[in-house]
Design a protein around this nucleic acid. Structure first.
Ligand code: FES
Ligand code: FES
Lengths: 138, 138
DNA sequence: ATTAAATAATACCTGAAAGTATTAATTTAT
DNA sequence: ATAAATTAATACTTTCAGGTATTATTTAAT
């Protein structure tokens, strides 16, 4: 839970690419490393490309590299592009925004975990992953 | 996101019942208050009954009341009975448990929000809802 | 020029969660 | 006894995220 399978895929893809920032990677390369279903992976790569995180080079020696600097790519933006952030920001009971003047019965209780979650997404960039020593991607 | 629609329904049902602890409520009562699809609501009530949170009285003047004291019913137990807690406790990348010795690239980053989330679920009971002044349930 | 190896576009399929329908069982009021 | 009002059991349908399949386009090596 927490995030959708597709968001999870997207994060894994971009994390692996971040750990290999220098090298252009093809869908084939990524498939071998990440074992995300091949055709689905390819579609996600096109999506991530359209979203402007990475850029594609077509043709025989094509592949993907980042289109932007790693330290400008926040987790929040990635998840936002895949499934949207609204479900995370809104009221736990029903998907609309938390009304400031009339919070629901659970607002107070969920406030802290929700804030912590969003805070993490909004302050962590792909660059932060490179500093860690962990490389396992599943 | 965060929790499934069914968990959300379950929480709303039990929250409303907690706020009306004294009175026996029928599926009809709950439907009128919560607008959860009627037949689905009825099935969920049977499930919650089987799980031991509430107890049903069948027949003409039947309905539901709590089977246990409110301060013993933790959010974690409710969600656990509906969709399971494992997806929340396990590794963000892949659904198995976080291996202590070999955490994934995102473990460190997700640790805090995950802990905060689980902490909230595991320390909040239905009794805690009654103390609040908020009564909105959607 | 041709072929091979890559990405892109688009339409289709599938499985699981969410929701619906039907029928049975239980209890109380009359 | 009968009918009305409730919960219980079980099977079916719908929806949509996740995954496949097919075909087109682009580029470089030969
Ligand atoms: S109003 Fe429901 S979580 Fe904020
Ligand atoms: S090992 Fe992946 S989140 Fe802990």
């Amino acid at each position: 839970m927490f995030i959708s399978k597709t968001s999870e895929h997207a994060l894994r893809i971009l994390t692996y690419m971040a750990l290999n920032y220098e090298t252009q990677l093809s869908a084939r390369n990524l498939f071998e490393e990440l074992q995300i279903p091949k055709r689905y992976l390819m579609r996600l790569l096109t999506d991530l490309s359209k979203s402007g995180f990475i850029k594609a080079t077509r043709g025989r020696s094509g592949g993907y590299v980042f289109a932007r600097s790693l330290d400008t790519i926040y987790f929040s933006e990635i998840i936002d592009s895949v499934e949207g952030l609204l479900p995370f920001e809104g009221c736990v009971l029903g998907s609309s925004v938390c009304p400031v003047d009339k919070p629901c019965a659970m607002h107070q209780i969920w406030e802290k975990p929700k804030q912590t979650f969003l805070e993490t997404l909004k302050t962590t960039t792909l660059a932060d992953l490179r500093s860690g020593k962990n490389i396992r991607l599943q």
